[in-house]
Design a protein around this nucleic acid. Structure first.
Lengths: 349, 349
DNA sequence: CATAGTACCGTAAACGTTTACGGAAATCAG
DNA sequence: CTGATTTCCGTAAACGTTTACGGTACTATG
């Protein structure tokens, strides 16, 4: 005898009552409930998830899909862990477990998600690294699985998403640099088709236009999100002959490689050349010079994601206010020393 | 009509045959099998996992537990993703899905794992950040869940594990430093009770002894695995008055903060002071100076983990040779410039 | 042609839960 | 005291699969 039957037998009670007691149903005597609860911990009984899922059609599990390919693997340092921790604190309130679903580099992300969804492993999904056109969104809509995207997209019918404020950051960074005399400002964006690249670039272009500066494609460098990417970005710009005096980095890890390449050319970041990173990372303040960048609370971001998702799930929506379908997450400037100088007028040509 | 019944009806065939066809059973006509397979993709049928699990008592899912607290969150950059990618490539061969189970900072790791196991979410587990005494191991043994630990432990009955070569690295690093004239070599280990700290320290002590050098507790600094940890470690050593001339870092991210603090004191890493890191990270070669450290293939590590685990699972063991219960993963020296100098004799006092 | 064997397929039970339904005992209203 | 209501609990069906078992039609064997 196993499972709930064992517990029922041990208490000399029916399995129905045991189940009701454990699930907090009202129609069970409080004394019996207490007995059941105690016996459950005593015998170490926890309901088998397959049984519950089969009966209820629900798994009490939320999935967060992450792609090991693309940006993620190179750039994931702590990002996901921070978000996950925040999200979990919300899900835990409803006995929901968050599991991370890593799509391996060998597998097609769409096929992967399709499989997960069809197997009904999860009740709802958080997807990340969303693309401008993302088939995963169409699929999730079709399968009627509640979901939220971390990263905006144009697929589907107005899907809910939450995204970082790429435009805002690019815009403010440009304002800052222009204010200090810079005119030829480079920008580093991902070399793949990642959505954030376009958005970041848009913010950059618009800010330039606002200041009456021309957009020069030669000042756009496409790189991988790694230290090496930063190294090559600097290398490319140095060779280009365009002589930029500043750069915006979409991935802050690039700063290390960039600093290095500049140093090799005798250029001193923070004195001869300004650098602004996108997101603050633990290392930002320990670089030489400390990197000017933008801060956000990953934990709060995770909480917001989780709450938005729950607000769209029939069983939980009454707990949460309806949130706007799209949210741009604000980021706060952290002043470092990597851009803390006025550009001499002779260089402003 | 849904699920397998729908498919059966559509084909005018019994559900038993459909199931057999899909599961590759021998007693089904090859023509029917083909028809079933085709109809399955046409109707987009994928067996409901709860149904299968309930019937078979197996979930086709392997869990990898990671703790967001402790080392992980601060130090996880790419480490897990690399391992996961390797492990997945093995599991995929057997239609097993690997899911990541993040234990939140708010929850007790033992209770968390207990719950996951009792719910029968997974067929087997990989646990990480193993402690010297780790109750998770006793629990998994008791629950008879196949598992392997990433990190050695003394709990349980000779549990299978795989671990990095902390002793070997410490030992080789000391040899190198001593060979270049260093006598007062500091070491940075985690400030928490993490197992790896003791092991790393042991290797360090033994190597010192081998060279006839005394162990000085003042040269041991306990830090967090972060840039900030490196900064404070350097700070502490500078204040101690012990004047070490070299340091071994268990977490390579510390190098950034350490370099910075040294620079603030007018000390030039790689010229006046030698630094050796434990594991190579993407940034190692872009630091100034590039960090001498030790390399391993995360992907291969993941593959080894997965294969060892499968070798211990009844349903798969015939595919895999029995591996030794314990394995120390070798690491290969990567020469940087952070220790590339001979210590002047006057400093060797 | 009779028999044995084989190839294929349908039926139904089982996995561990939850929950609709109905019933017994207790309580309440009059 | 009777009838109505409430409180609590047991019974059994249902969720979607897999698989043991048995049966039918065909093939091979003598």
């Amino acid at each position: 005898m196993k499972g709930i039957r064992r517990l029922a037998q041990h208490l000399d009670i029916s399995i129905g009552t045991v189940s009701r007691a454990l699930n907090g149903r009202p129609d069970v005597n409080e004394d019996t409930r207490k007995r059941v609860l105690e016996a459950a911990v005593e015998l170490g009984y926890v309901p088998n998830q397959s049984g519950r899922s089969l009966r209820q059609g629900t798994t009490n599990t939320i999935g967060l899909m992450m792609e090991s390919s693309a940006q993620t693997v190179e750039n994931s340092d702590n990002f996901f862990m921070g978000v996950v921790d925040g999200a979990q604190s919300v899900f835990a309130r409803h006995q929901l477990d968050l599991i991370l679903l890593p799509c391996s580099t060998d597998e097609d992300p769409n096929a992967y998600l399709q499989r997960i969804v069809a197997r009904r492993l999860v009740d709802a999904m958080i997807i990340s690294a969303t693309r401008k056109i993302d088939k995963r969104i169409d699929m999730l809509e079709k399968a009627k699985i509640p979901f939220i995207a971390l990263g905006r997209s144009e697929s589907g019918h107005n899907p809910p998403w939450l995204d970082l404020d790429f435009e805002g950051v690019a815009s403010r960074a440009i304002d800052r640099l222009v204010g200090r005399g810079h005119r030829r400002i480079a920008i580093a964006v991902p070399h793949n088709e990642a959505n954030l690249g376009y958005i970041f670039l848009d913010g950059y272009k618009q800010a330039l236009a606002r200041h009456g500066l021309a957009f020069d494609p030669d000042l756009v460098t496409r790189t991988s999100s790694s230290e090496q990417g930063g190294y090559f970005a600097a290398d490319e710009l140095l060779r280009s002959g365009k002589q930029p005096t500043a750069i915006l980095l979409i991935y802050e890890v690039m700063a290390i490689g960039l600093y290095r390449r500049l140093a090799e050319a005798g250029i001193h970041a923070g004195r001869d050349f300004a650098v602004i990173g996108f997101r603050e990372s633990p290392q930002s303040r320990f670089l030489s010079p400390p990197l000017t960048c933008f801060r956000l609370s990953l934990r709060d971001l995770g909480i917001a994601l989780a709450e938005s998702l729950l607000a769209s799930m029939p069983s939980f929506k009454h707990h949460y206010p309806q949130t706007p379908a799209h949210r741009i997450w604000p980021m706060e400037l952290v002043e470092g020393e990597s851009d803390a100088f006025e550009l001499p007028v002779k260089n402003q040509a």
